[in-house]
């Protein structure tokens, strides 16, 4: 299965990655190689195999509904200078 330039551009856009025109051909080739490798799996008959949601044969442990965290806003917000009135700030989002 081959990827088109358009596919690569679409994926890059979804991932918010800037990919230049010169890089695109390289990505098309390398990503197609990965898909070809995955394609090889199709040769195995999996009609009897259940889809795997997780490699561990365990189920989800559940937590008791009790608050355990304390307010550490100052500590967390020391990691950024983009804070105002207790809010994290980002460039203006225009709706």
């Amino acid at each position: 299965m081959g990827l088109s330039k358009k596919d690569v551009q679409h994926i890059a856009n979804l991932a918010r990655l800037e990919v230049s025109d010169e890089q695109i051909d390289d990505y098309v080739e390398k990503l197609t190689q990965i898909l070809d490798m995955v394609d090889a799996l199709k040769e195995v008959d999996t009609s009897e195999v259940l889809p795997l949601a997780h490699p561990l044969h365990m189920s989800q442990p559940l937590r008791v509904d009790e608050p355990t965290e304390k307010n550490q806003r100052d500590l967390f917000q020391a990691n950024t200078e983009h804070v105002e009135q207790g809010l994290y700030t980002v460039p203006k989002v225009i709706e």
């Binding site: 983009h82 105002e84 009135q85 809010l87 994290y88 700030t89 460039p91 203006k92 989002v93």
Partner: peptide, 8 residues
């Protein structure tokens, strides 16, 4: 906020 979007 005036110039930025605030996130809570």
């Amino acid at each position: 906020l005036k110039d930025r979007t605030g996130i809570d």
